[in-house]
Amino acid sequence: MYFSGIQKLDNLLLVSVPRDLVDDEVIQLRRDVLQAIRQFKSQIVLLDFSQVDICDSFFGRFIYGTSQMTKLMGAKVIISGLQDAVIETMVELGMTLPDVDAVLDLDDALELTSRMFKRNGKLGGADADNEAMPDDDDKVLAK
């Protein structure tokens, strides 16, 4: 059963993506995320995938599409918690998710977003994003 694990944390939206979502639930989750961004005026959306152990191309499209849609709302998606096996499978399948920023886990995600807000007061444009992004070693799939 679909459970929308969306929490508001200050300017962040924390989305715990459940495992085994079927397609209509994935689409509903995305709509719930976009609605929550508008409702809470969130600037950063953390999509946490630590519960997800199977990520096929449909799911990859969900991640990429959500990132693009969120951008059009003036916010930014950061993904966290992708498991090693999921990452290996996604990349070998051909899903590299260009332009989607990732961090290793939720702790790193919170540290990153904290730095972003500290430097900029609020999340600014592309320059602010780039300044606050972690070193390459910290990224998982970020290009």
Partner: peptide, 18 residues
């Protein structure tokens, strides 16, 4: 199977099923 290989098998089932 190691987790990564088991995951690949699951994803292939998913892709072909889709």
């Amino acid at each position: 199977f190691q987790t990564a290989d088991a995951t690949k098998i699951a994803v292939v089932i998913s892709e072909l099923g889709r």
